[in-house]
Every structure is written in structure tokens, then in C-alpha cells.
């Protein structure tokens, strides 16, 4: 039976899926660890909230994506300058600066947030349809990128940037491309979030959100699209299923992450690869 509960749950899962797919492009395909994905998510949400009154829905999604990827481009430029752990901490900083600036701006509603975001006009089922369509589109897009020449470039940069350069791969261009596309997806997710809750507050785009998205990507298995999809769905729904044990659910969530990393550091995708290898010893036929 599909009720309002299931429908809204699908919306929440879809938003996380969009975020995870976008981050998977940056962190998974291109190897740039980002601890600030919520900043792009938030940029999209705020942009959408500001323009949703005057524009049709598809235009709002586009504008949100563009605003987010403008910020993404900036951070991408920064990623050309700082590497690895320095980049991880820089992106974390971007996240904190985003929230810290937004919560002081009157025109963004400051702490009270932005409100009266118009109805999407699609109805409950229509909205969920839109969510699922966007997720499918994004999954297809990332799948296509992974298989394309661009995906090869990403992988080369992720693997060993210096070697990639000596092979004549323009590492800077690939990094920028990863940030721009990945953050565009986050911006679209932000717009969907704004339509979903119909008000936004700075607290919804904090550090813990960035962390939980990165966790989905890494538990899924860095770079694996289906792994990230499965992990995003599982990790979003886990607290939902464990509501009966309200008190222990976050503990359970933490423990799951620790155990996955400890015993399956390759994430879900790593586990499946290992099982496949065991089924076909010696590399198979």
C-alpha cells in the first residue's frame, strides 16, 4: 500500500540519492574527497527558494543547479591549488563558511530561514515521479560519464594525478569538470528539497549532512554507481526501520559505518567484487 508516508519517504531517499550520485562523481570517479557537499546542496535550495515564486519548475531546477555549480567551479579552482587532505579540509571549510554566512544574511531569512516556497503543483505522486525521474536521469548521466572518455580521464586523475599529467591528460580540466557536474546535481537536489519542505533554514545544510553524504559514497564503494545507490537507500532508511529502538539508532548507524570500513573497506561494491572473485577462482573463464 502506498500512502503519504511511503511517498514522502521516497522523496527523502531521492534527495539523498541525488546528493550521493553527485558526490560520487567528484570523490568516486575523480578522487577529490569533499567534506562540504552540503554547501552546494544549500546553495541550490536557497537559489530555488528565491526564484521559485517567479519561474516554472524546470527553470527553478536549472537555476538552482547553475548557482550551485558556480560555487562548485570556485571550489574546483581551489582544488587545483590544494591537494588530498588539504582539499578535504578546505571543502569542509567551504561548508562552514556557507552556513556561517547564510545564517547572518537578512535577505536569506537569516536564522528564521526562507518560507512560503510555492507548491510544485504536481501533486504528491507527481512530485515523487519527478524525484525518481531525476534520480534515474542522474544515475544514467553518471553511468554514461563513467564509460566515456571523460570517465577515463577522471579515473586517471583519481589514480595518480602526476602520471595522468605525464600521459598528457589535462588533470585541471577534469577536476573542474567533476566539481561542476557534481555540484550541479547537488544544486538540483537542493531545489527538490526546497519544494519538498517548502521552507529552508541554514541548519539543514550543515557539516553533518556533508558527512552523511560522503558516508553513503564510501560505504557504497567509491566510484561504483549501484553501490552508492544501494548505500544511499540503506543508510537513509536505516533510522526509519529502527525507529522502534529510537534510543540506539544513531549508535547502530555509527557501528554500521565502523564495521563496514573495518571489514569491507571497499564498501558494498568491494564486497560484491570479492564474492565474485571467490566464485570464479583464478580469474574464471
Amino acid at each position: 500500500m502506498i500512502g503519504a508516508y511511503e511517498i514522502t519517504l521516497v522523496a527523502v531517499v531521492s534527495i539523498n540519492l541525488m546528493l550521493a550520485l553527485g558526490l560520487n562523481l567528484i570523490t568516486g570517479f575523480c578522487g577529490q574527497v569533499s567534506l562540504g557537499h552540503a554547501a552546494f546542496f544549500g546553495t541550490g535550495a536557497y537559489a530555488a527558494a528565491l526564484v521559485a515564486g517567479g519561474l516554472p519548475l524546470p527553470a527553478v531546477l536549472l537555476v538552482a543547479g547553475l548557482f550551485a555549480c558556480a560555487l562548485g567551479l570556485l571550489v574546483g579552482v581551489a582544488s587545483l591549488r590544494v591537494r588530498e587532505d588539504f582539499l578535504a579540509i578546505t571543502t569542509m571549510g567551504v561548508g562552514f563558511v556557507f552556513v556561517g554566512v547564510v545564517r547572518k544574511q537578512g535577505f536569506l531569512g537569516a536564522e528564521m530561514g526562507l518560507t512560503d516556497i510555492p507548491d510544485h503543483g504536481l501533486g504528491d505522486l507527481g512530485f515523487v515521479g519527478l524525484c525518481l525521474a531525476l534520480v534515474a536521469l542522474m544515475a544514467l548521466l553518471t553511468w554514461h560519464i563513467k564509460r566515456s572518455w571523460m570517465g577515463f580521464g577522471f579515473a586517471a586523475v583519481a589514480d595518480d594525478e602526476r602520471t595522468a599529467r605525464t600521459l598528457g591528460i589535462n588533470a585541471a580540466a577534469y577536476k573542474l569538470a567533476a566539481f561542476v557536474i557534481g555540484t550541479f546535481l547537488a544544486g538540483v537536489a537542493g531545489a527538490v528539497y526546497a519544494y519538498f519542505t517548502r521552507f529552508i533554514i541554514p541548519g539543514a545544510f550543515g557539516f553533518t549532512v556533508s558527512i552523511s553524504i560522503l558516508t553513503m559514497v564510501i560505504v557504497g564503494g567509491v566510484g561504483s554507481i549501484w553501490g552508492v545507490v544501494v548505500a544511499a537507500v540503506l543508510l537513509t532508511l536505516l533510522p526509519e526501520f529502527s525507529r522502534v529502538i529510537n534510543d540506539y539508532k544513531l549508535l547502530l548507524y555509527g557501528a554500521l559505518i565502523v564495521l563496514t570500513m573495518r571489514f569491507a573497506p571497499g564498501g558494498l561494491a568491494g564486497v560484491v567484487a570479492a564474492v565474485k572473485a571467490r566464485v570464479r577462482p583464478g580469474g574464471g573463464p
Binding site: 500512502g3 508516508y5 514522502t8 527523502v12 534527495i15 528539497y193 519538498f196 539543514a204 533510522p239
Partner: peptide
């Protein structure tokens, strides 16, 4: 019937629907 909203707006929407529907 007690649920944890974790202080998160987006989680509270399904939760409210669950209280109503389930």
C-alpha cells in the same frame, strides 16, 4: 506514540505522515 525527529525538518515530514497513516 514517540518518534525521534533528530532535529531535522526533512525527516519530520515522513514521520508526521507515519503518525497519520500508519
Amino acid at each position: 506514540v514517540v518518534y525521534d525527529d533528530e532535529g531535522k525538518p526533512e525527516n519530520t515530514i515522513p514521520l508526521a505522515n507515519k503518525l497519520i497513516g500508519q
